[in-house]
Design a protein around this nucleic acid. Structure first.
Lengths: 350, 350
DNA sequence: AATCCTTGTGCAAAGGATTGCAGAACGGCG
DNA sequence: CGCCGTTCTGCAATCCTTTGCACAAGGATT
């Protein structure tokens, strides 16, 4: 004869219906050995009949742990993050954690907001692809993609240096290019104060400079460009057009991300340049359907899945208190050679 | 001299530090007119100095509302959902809601689990692209992409029928095809019991049959295929190969989604068929970089952004209690003609 | 028969913010 | 000087679950 609340039944309802106290009901549902087998069964039966679902707000409040983690990414819409996010989520959910995904829109300020929100939600941990706005909220954090210099947190990132080197070396050693331009993501993920962000953008840029230098090639300043955070695609398009308008246009281009590479390709098309006949083009990230593009794009294998998974696993370790070394794990890159670099795969030759 | 808790300051800390009661502190931070201006300022000042952040668990528990909504999608990794998700999230966050994103992995059972989880989290509302496992959890829900027949909830979906008609009519009227095959997403999003799901898969399939019928064309059963939920890409690839192995292979194919279309394209390549010279190909959704594919893909404009935004707005209305008519809003489709259908854009003719 | 375990169960506090209600302080008015 | 209204504050209850502690019942032991 308990008054049934219209919305969701509460533990009190279950207890009343089963004729036990809330405490016993709680313990019964937790399968505690402290409660008698018959009582346990009775409570479970009632609980299922009423479709009882413990209120996580109350539980978390009492327990001091939410079993939820926050995931902060620059842009869920970008395929790299969407895909990394998914694999991270799968791992974390399998471990019983819930995932709150927040967008930072590649803006440090919005990222800080997102972090505060997550703190307010009392998340137990954090997975962040930072846009420069990271600040400690007192829970274990693991970084991926971008790695803040700040110590004390693990990180998983691509081997940007090795990856860029593969791309440049291929253009130089195999195809003999001597005028190579680079279009990268924003260099300085503008971070305040003392925390210098070791962002993927900067790493790739420096790696490019180093690789070109090692090859003994000249690198006019106009050959090095970076995009604004908000307009990758568009910036790359105009960059390609402007690069081709130079007195000495490059004979090859490196796109620092999938979006940048497709943007470059569009720009080249608009100028009537053929790839790879007129200009070679390679990409750091793998564009979606890279093999179906015209021309098929030579790029680095994308390890978005691995990255997401590894970051999630690192976070789980941190949450479990396994204080491993908080270093940065680098995921190696591998080159997928297709046609945009100039390789002629149908013949097998160059 | 208040004992500062190491982790996060609580309202009690702020109150003590400001020399007022918790009640006053709470009201001050809520900018209630009940509290004296000076007191208000003092509390705010302390709150900011301590970087106080109200515990949402406690607040929501007390208030009975979480200002959080759940978003259930088949696959966050798929570009359509990733993109729709993002725009929905932007709208909802702008309105002060937080978004919990859960994957159903295109499985009804996992979707049910996700919904229970969201109920446990006490979300205030739901945005769901159902995979057939929807069940009422007692909060306002808005559907997108797939529309369950069940009444009482609004829905936003593409005009599947009109879209398919555009594709088929173009193939028939402009290019004169008479043997058109269709590869679609799973037809029956297997839903239990009495709730018949009006899924996008079924709608598109029926629209295809109707459009072919209207054109007076024959439709051998082998020409109509659907994929399994788990393996769109792969299923489409083998479908294309098998279709081309028929005694009477189709001269045109319709891909029921972006992934299916790129899968078909791969399959055709593998069989050495050229698109559009040997077989025409059009796609329902817009693949990423559709214009850069080889050949550029004729497809329907993707309205993922609009869909996400509109669904979010509908949910906000429902949350505000504006009980509009709970009907289904259909987003019209528009055809982006490129080369894969056989149109020769450089000449301007067919 | 008294005492001591064992085994189950219940009471009540805790967790942090919100809010109805009561009451304090103070100015104004008769 | 007494009373009434404002204007602020504070007490304490509430949201729901978990859990430390106490206690009841019953059998076993001396």
């Amino acid at each position: 004869m308990a008054v049934r609340r219209s919305a969701t039944p509460t533990l009190a309802d279950v207890a009343a219906e089963a004729g036990v106290s809330q405490a016993t009901a709680s313990r019964a549902l937790a399968d505690s050995p402290l409660v008698n087998e018959n009582t346990r069964r009775r409570v479970w039966e009632v609980s299922e009949r009423l479709r009882f679902q413990p209120n996580r707000l109350a539980r978390s409040l009492r327990r001091g742990a939410t079993m939820a983690v926050g995931l902060v990414v620059p842009d869920v819409g970008a395929s790299f993050y969407a895909s990394a996010l998914k694999s991270a989520q799968d791992v974390l959910e399998a471990a019983g954690y819930h995932v709150l995904v927040l967008n930072s829109g590649r803006a440090a300020a919005r990222e800080r907001e997102a972090l505060r929100t997550l703190r307010a939600h009392q998340v137990d941990g954090l997975l962040v692809a930072t846009s420069g706005g990271y600040e400690d909220i007192g829970v274990p954090a693991v970084f991926f993609d971008n790695v803040p210099a700040q110590r004390g947190a693990g990180a998983v990132a691509m081997d940007n240096d090795g990856g860029v080197r593969l791309l440049v070396d291929h253009l130089v050693d195999v195809h003999g290019h001597e005028r190579i331009a680079y279009m990268g993501p924003p260099e300085a993920v503008g971070t305040g104060a003392d925390d210098v962000l070791q962002g993927a953008g900067r790493e790739r840029l420096e790696a490019f400079r180093a690789a070109v230098g090692r090859a003994g090639l000249p690198l006019p300043p106009e050959y090095v460009r970076t995009s604004e955070p908000a307009s990758f695609e568009e910036d790359a398009r105009v960059a390609a057009r402007e690069l081709m308008a130079l007195a000495q246009p490059p004979t090859a281009m490196v796109g620092g991300s999938d979006t940048l590479a497709t943007g470059l390709l569009r720009g080249l098309r608009e100028r009537g340049r053929r790839v790879p006949e007129d200009v070679a083009l390679v990409s750091f990230d793998e564009p979606v359907s890279a093999d179906l593009l015209d021309p098929p794009m030579t790029c680095l294998d994308r390890h978005d899945r691995d990255l997401g998974r590894m970051a999630a696993e690192a976070l789980l370790r941190a949450l479990a208190g396994d204080e491993g070394p908080p270093g940065t794990v680098r995921v190696p890159a591998a080159l997928s050679v297709r046609r945009s670099c100039g390789c002629d795969l149908t013949e097998g030759g160059v």
